[in-house]
Design a protein around this nucleic acid. Structure first.
Lengths: 159, 159
DNA sequence: ACACAATTCCCCACAATTCCCCACATTTTT
DNA sequence: AAAAATGTGGGGAATTGTGGGGAATTGTGT
């Protein structure tokens, strides 16, 4: 089912009207897997936007909801926060999306952005420090080594 | 399916359109092991490109993802770093790959490149300083000694 | 409710890159 | 020597990616 596999990253420019070309490779995957809509929200942790194909979004929501009690005021608030500030994107005739100003401002997108395929989701990063890696190579290698050798990563494991 | 084992290196030229012949010896191995696609990625540490046969890539990715929580800020960042700067390559009718300009620029590939078989992956190095060794002989021997005396190199080794 | 500004939508044009086809030199195999 | 496979190169069509002009829509203040 979840054959959605967004791969790769690319750079792009947001034009003066806030429009942005949706990379052809991603569009292809959407078509192939029969996905129609795209849901966008600001990432919970990072300063970037996340785009979910509709089916992935639904799965996420269901997963989250199943963990949260409907009758717990606090948990209900968490859920609300997750669902609020969500935007449905549509492609225009040229295959572009319009990034509402509000969202651009949220993560500080001006001109340059970077698309990043994250398997079942897509991320959109402001492109100011685009050529810098997300992590320091040293740190990355250390963590990766640990991970691939079966040791648990950090103290907080939530599974 | 037998194990993929790319060995040897060879020099080649990128033409004016960024195309590059995929060495016949490597292609043969791809065929024999029934590999179709190639995933290319900028190495995090080195200034080179790494090519994974699709199955190798999938194994790597699956291994990583199964250990990473989507809801952990740090783990998500590791995954992000791993999948950023990744591209799907396809061979054209002549058995060439097109190296997107972005990637050529990332590692500084102009004309000459060098293919290097790295067992289950293939590396592609800019060939300007092609005849120089990757490491100083002195450093190489020291490191190798250290590695082979206890620390694990790949997941095949005990740890 | 009204005028006005900002935003979104729907056209069209155009540059850069990628894809597809064919030609040809060089090396290896028969 | 001929044939096949290996590398190199280029023309041009198709796709991808950028940009802009307004019309329609939404939102704002008075």
């Amino acid at each position: 089912m979840s054959a959605v596999e967004f791969i790769g990253s690319s750079d792009a420019k947001v034009d003066s009207k806030g429009r942005l070309f949706f990379p052809a490779s991603f569009r292809k995957i959407m078509q192939e897997t029969g996905e129609a809509g795209l849901i966008m929200r600001k990432d919970v942790f990072q300063n970037c936007l996340v785009l979910y194909p509709e089916s992935v979004w639904k799965t996420q929501l269901a997963g989250l909801r199943s963990r949260l009690s409907r009758w717990d005021r606090r948990e209900q608030m968490i859920f609300r926060q997750f669902v609020a500030d969500v935007e449905l994107l549509t492609l225009d005739a040229n295959g572009r999306v319009l990034l509402p100003k509000r969202y651009r401002d949220m993560v500080g997108i001006l001109q340059d952005v970077r698309w990043v395929g994250m398997a079942d989701t897509i991320e959109l990063w402001p492109g100011e420090r685009m050529n810098e890696p997300f992590m320091e190579p040293e740190e990355f290698s250390t963590e990766l080594e640990r991970l691939m050798n079966g040791e648990s990563l950090t103290e907080n494991e939530s599974r």
